[in-house]
Amino acid sequence: MSRSVWKGPFVDAYVLKKAEAAREAGRNEVIKIWSRRSTILPQFVGLTFGVYNGKKHVPVLVSEDMIGQKFGEYSPTRTYYGHAADKKAKRK
């Protein structure tokens, strides 16, 4: 069952606090968070979060199309590398 709309999106309070502090400071830094359950809010766009995956903090640069998802979705706890073959990386 999905979350009731009247409650609004869930975000751990410390994530909001850290994001706000980083935005005010305007520094280029990775905001380390452990809260994989927090929802990505519009005010996080452009910030880089280090989302803990149980071993290390995976850098996640938040973009507009990630709004409404959870941080944990971008920091897998199991990693499969596979083959590089013809895979391409795009520098955004």
Partner: peptide
């Protein structure tokens, strides 16, 4: 190079260090 759904990440390893560092490819 890995991609977990956000940006591509370069996994950088340094001689003498066991842990790797993920560098956003931006």
């Amino acid at each position: 190079v890995v991609n977990h759904g956000a940006t591509d990440l370069l996994e950088v390893t340094k001689m003498g260090y066991r842990d790797t560092v993920l560098l956003p490819f931006t």
